[in-house]
């Protein structure tokens, strides 16, 4: 089994700050992490490899420093790593990103043999679009399985996989053919910690670096800003509301009094809510 796991290095969004005057993002010193959703997909891939043999290849597109995310993924257990990096990729939207990644996966298949499974994160925490995985699947003609809560069975001989997929009001049990693209739902497994031998191996394992040409991309106008049909016209901080919260007076008052005042103020502002709640309570 050859399994590719697409990961993304993202800023730890808990630590992002916006400059109060210029409204620009202050990137300096913000640590980067592997997109947390990708880790559930990486773990699922490692479990399948452990069951059936084969190798897990992590792939990322990003700046040269994204190598760090690849080494972390190898520390967790991935066998090989591929970094797709080129200035032509800068400014990619999801259509351009899925194009470049699918070209890289095709190139990996030339070197490593046919790819049976591609895993992607459900979405990233910086872009939150959930579109790159489906985009890759569409371009490579992979059967698409998103929001997977568990992998029930994998039959490499019959080239079939059975999964549970989160849908509205329940889960679908789906069976499809390899090759396919899977995104795992958060919490669907417990991501293993890096082992010492893996971490040591990850530090010295060579990483295959591909630029656009090496990934087989001849027409670079399909990458980056030029290959992106969407155009960001404006970036801005949300407007603060004109009026701030009306604060309940708390000076030298008991919590009971404060709570009573708050309830009175709420019902004064929303008399209909008051009537409805009372009506509901009377029926109970």
């Amino acid at each position: 089994m050859n399994i590719v796991v697409c990961i993304k290095q993202v800023p730890d969004s808990a630590q992002i700050r916006v400059h109060p005057v210029t409204n620009t993002i202050m990137r300096q010193g913000v640590p980067t992490i592997i997109n947390p959703y990708d880790l559930f997909s990486l773990e699922a891939a490692l479990q399948l490899r452990d069951q059936t043999g084969g190798k897990v290849i992590v792939l990322t597109m990003g700046p040269p420093m994204a190598e760090d995310a690849l080494r972390k993924a190898m520390g967790i257990g991935a066998d090989k790593a591929v970094l797709l990096t080129d200035r032509f990729f800068a400014g990619s939207d999801t259509l351009a990103t899925s194009f470049s990644l699918s070209m890289a996966i095709t190139k990996i298949a030339e070197k490593e043999g046919p790819i049976d499974l591609v895993f992607c994160g459900k979405q990233t925490i910086d872009g939150d679009t959930a579109q790159v995985g489906p985009g890759i699947a569409c371009r490579l003609g992979l059967n698409q399985l998103t929001y997977i809560t568990s992998i029930e069975a994998l039959d490499p001989k019959a080239r079939e996989i059975t999964v549970q997929r989160r849908a509205e009001g329940g889960v679908q049990v789906l069976k499809t053919k390899l090759p396919c693209m899977i995104t795992m739902l958060e919490g669907s497994n417990i991501v293993r910690r890096g082992s010492m031998p893996n971490v040591l191996r990850a530090a010295r394992e060579p990483i295959l670096t591909l630029n656009a040409a090496a990934a087989g991309i001849e027409d670079v106008t399909r990458c980056g800003l030029r290959g992106s049909p969407t155009v960001v016209k404006k970036v801005f901080a949300p407007k603060p509301r004109a009026d701030k919260a009306k604060l309940i007076d708390t000076t030298n008052r008991s919590t009971t009094d404060i709570a009573n005042d708050a309830v009175d103020a709420l019902f004064a502002a929303a008399p209909k809510l008051h009537t409805d709640l009372v009506g509901r309570a009377a029926q109970a």
């Binding site: 400014g91 990619s92 579109q131 969407t230 970036v235």
Partner: peptide, 25 residues
């Protein structure tokens, strides 16, 4: 979609002040 990346080298980041195509017609 639009995980618009900033100009290189920080391709994993968000748009820098709207990207360079904000004036595109």
């Amino acid at each position: 979609m639009t995980e618009k990346a900033a100009p290189a080298p920080a391709a994993a980041a968000a748009p820098a002040a709207g990207g360079s195509r904000a004036g595109m017609k």
